[in-house]
Design a binder for these strands. Structure first.
Lengths: 128, 128
DNA sequence: ACTAACGTTTACGTAAACGTCAACTTTTGA
DNA sequence: TCAAAAGTTGACGTTTACGTAAACGTTAGT
């Protein structure tokens, strides 16, 4: 299954055909063509997964495009490589900040949960 | 500084007055009133920070409202406490899934960075 | 041969999360 | 006292990320 139709990829990914066409119009994926019809190869399917992961993390499509472009930027010159490394470092910092937000939220939720559990235990004790 | 104006909170938080009023209209914050004017206490300011953190994590305002409401839900009965604990557990799983997405992305970016650095070293070697 | 099923482009509609006036009242410093 | 500054409530505009519908071409099974 090296190439698949838009319906196949839609079923496999959960994204609607409309969404896949929209992402293409935004330059996020570039499927092959057989006449008019789109044909998605492994590279396109991988990018769809990257797009969806980016969305789960709250990135806009514009940011997602920049992120996935980091993966296959054809860097030859030293200057291009340095620029690419700088961009990767910036995204890493951004992701680490998000991770820190997550850790804080998790800690707070755990603390609320602890209070809840204690109250539950007290209620059970009163009931006996 | 137990109470502050909308302009004060706007400066302190980075959210515009329009945004603060919008969040209020959506039921995310409930400032006091002095006549017509809004007065924000510490509780309101804390909620603003929670909202902004939720936004950085890609949650919608509807989700954020559910999340911040977990912090001050007045659970008295055992049934309410159990429900609250279940909701907290669901949010925890969601946050852990996001964290896993972040770890994957970080790992991939590091691998791309490693390739870049290797190429850079090779280029420097060729130059000598 | 024919009709579903699948695909295409084009265009308009929509929900979320505010931005941007407008028109007006209230407060406050000179 | 009086004008600037700050605040208020509508109401309409904007961007993002698609949904939905129209009108049409292509392909596959009976």
């Amino acid at each position: 299954m090296i190439l698949c139709s838009i319906a196949d990829l839609s079923r496999a990914s959960g994204a609607t055909p409309r969404t896949l066409r929209f992402w293409e119009s935004e330059g996020l994926i570039q499927p092959k063509r057989e006449g008019q019809r789109r044909l998605y190869d492994q590279r396109a399917r991988t990018r769809v997964k990257l797009i969806q992961r980016g969305q789960r993390l709250g990135f806009s499509l514009a940011e997602i495009r920049e992120i996935v472009d980091l993966y296959d930027a054809p860097a030859e010159e030293a200057a291009q490589l340095s620029l690419l490394l700088a961009r990767i470092a910036a995204r890493r910092r951004q992701l680490e900040a998000k991770r820190a937000d997550i850790e804080e939220t998790l800690a707070e939720l755990e603390s609320v949960a602890a209070v809840c559990k204690e109250r539950l235990v007290n209620l059970e004790g009163d009931a006996q």
